[in-house]
Simulated scan of single mutants.
Amino acid sequence: MTAASSGRLWGVASGLGAGAMWGLVFLAPKFAPEASPLLLTAGRYLAYGLIAAVLIAPRWRRLAPLIEGRTWRALVWLSLAGNLVYFAFVVVAVHLAGVAASALIVGMVPVVVALWGLRDRSGPSLSRAAPPIVLAALAVALIGWRALSQGEAGAEGPTGAQALIGLVCAVGALASWSAYAVGNSRWMARLPEVSPHDWSLLTGVVTGGLALILAVPAVWTAQDWSGGQWLHLAGVCLGVALLASIIGNALWNQASRRLPLSMLGQMIVFETVFAFVYGYVWEGRGPALVEILAILMMIVSVIWCVRAHAPPRGAEEPPH
Rank of each mutant, 00 (worst) to 15 (best):
I247Y: 06
W220D: 14
L293V: 13
P58S: 11
Y48V: 08
A130W: 08
I165D: 05
A101M: 14
R44G: 04
V91T: 10
V111L: 14
S176M: 09
F26A: 04
A175N: 10
A241R: 04
G166K: 08
M263P: 01
V306L: 06
L84G: 02
E316I: 11
P319D: 07
L148C: 04
R128V: 12
G98M: 01
W116T: 14
R121Q: 13
P33V: 11
L46P: 00
V91A: 11
V85Q: 01
S5L: 12
W72D: 12
L115N: 02
A136T: 01
A173E: 00
V112A: 11
M188G: 10
L115E: 01
A139Y: 02
R73W: 15
F274E: 03
L50E: 06
V90R: 00
H95K: 15
V90G: 02
R70V: 15
L164Q: 15
P132T: 03
W282N: 08
A81E: 02
V302N: 00
T203R: 09
I246L: 09
E317T: 13
R146G: 12
A141T: 05
I292H: 12
L214M: 11
L296T: 13
P33F: 09
F26V: 05
C169D: 01
L75S: 02
P318R: 11
S122R: 15
F270L: 04
L55I: 10
E316H: 14
V306H: 03
L231I: 14
A179L: 12
D224G: 12
S301A: 13
A53P: 00
A114L: 05
I303W: 13
V240E: 03
L39E: 01
A13W: 10
G248F: 00
D224R: 12
I105M: 07
Q254V: 11
N253D: 05
A3I: 12
M297E: 00
A163T: 14
T2C: 10
V171K: 06
A250Y: 00
V99S: 02
Q266V: 02
A64L: 15
P65L: 10
V25H: 06
G172H: 07
R8M: 10
G265R: 00
A310P: 01
I67M: 07
A153H: 06
D198K: 08
R257T: 08
R307Y: 07
D120N: 11
P260S: 09
V205E: 00
A215Y: 04
P318W: 05
V90A: 04
A93P: 07
L96F: 09
M1K: 12
R307F: 07
V219K: 02
V91R: 01
N253I: 01
C237Q: 03
P124Y: 03
E283Q: 14
E156K: 15
I165R: 13
P287W: 08
Y45V: 05
L289P: 11
A97T: 06
S14Q: 01
V111N: 01
I268C: 00
P192F: 07
I268H: 02
V273D: 00
G227A: 12
L38S: 10
S245M: 09
I165G: 11
W225M: 06
R121W: 09
E152W: 15
L138H: 04
N253C: 04
R313C: 09
R128G: 08
P131K: 07
L259W: 04
W22H: 03
T207D: 05
E68Y: 11
S226N: 11
V300I: 15
L264C: 06
R190I: 07
A114N: 03
L38P: 01
G204C: 06
